[in-house]
Simulated scan of single mutants.
Amino acid sequence: MIARHLRGLTDAADVRTLAFQRATMMLRHAAADNELAALLGQPGTGKTFCALAFLDAVAASGRRAIFLQSDVTATHTLMTVRLLQKLTGGRPSGEGYHLTDDLAELLEEHSPVVVVDEAHRAQSRGWTSWCS
């Protein structure tokens, strides 16, 4: 795995702690069942590192792996557009509900593993409908 959080660090070994192993197992089960999962914990405890390591393993197995970064401006439509861009490689256009329908079809068709980092930053009005 590439050390993404530690720029310039080379030849380092990952330490697969018990928490890391448990989180990976939970992510593996959620991905196998096409379910939602959340990694919760204090800042700096390795949640993003674990999710990225998991996505690397998913991609190595041949399944589509997508990483999205959330922010305070993220709305339902913005996150839908970002995910559609990752799935199609193009910039989607149209009304929000049409975009959501398009996204639902692509997610069902391709069954990617999607990680949304810092999802708590997203505007709650944007995520309520997306995650339900």
Rank of each mutant, 00 (worst) to 15 (best):
A30I: 02
G41R: 14
V113Y: 04
H98A: 11
H120K: 04
D33S: 10
R91D: 06
R28H: 10
A59Q: 08
T24H: 12
A37D: 02
V115A: 11
T80F: 04
A38V: 15
K86C: 08
G96L: 07
L84E: 02
L83V: 00
T24C: 14
T24Y: 08
G62S: 09
G62F: 06
E35Y: 11
L107M: 14
F54D: 01
G46Y: 05
G41E: 13
L68Q: 07
G46L: 04
H76M: 08
M26I: 08
A74P: 00
Y97V: 12
H110R: 15
H76E: 10
A122V: 08
M26S: 00
G126F: 02
D56F: 05
T24V: 11
T77C: 14
S70I: 08
V115P: 01
V115S: 12
V58H: 05
S61E: 11
L40M: 12
M25D: 13
L87D: 06
G126L: 03
R28W: 08
L99C: 09
A37T: 01
G96W: 05
L78W: 01
H110A: 15
P112G: 13
R28F: 02
E109N: 07
M79G: 03
A74E: 00
T45K: 01
V58F: 02
Q69D: 08
A57P: 03
T73M: 14
F54T: 01
V72M: 09
L36I: 11
V81C: 14
A119V: 12
G96Y: 06
M26A: 05
W127E: 03
G41T: 15
L55C: 10
E109F: 14
L52R: 03
A30M: 10
E105F: 06
G41L: 10
A53T: 15
G96H: 06
E105V: 11
N34F: 13
M25N: 10
G94R: 09
L83Q: 00
L106S: 04
L83F: 00
F49W: 14
S93L: 10
E35Q: 12
V114C: 15
G126D: 03
R82I: 02
A59Y: 02
D101G: 13
D33H: 14
M25Y: 13
L39K: 01
L107R: 04
T45I: 08
M26W: 01
S111I: 15
D102A: 11
V81I: 09
K47V: 06
S70Q: 02
Q85L: 07
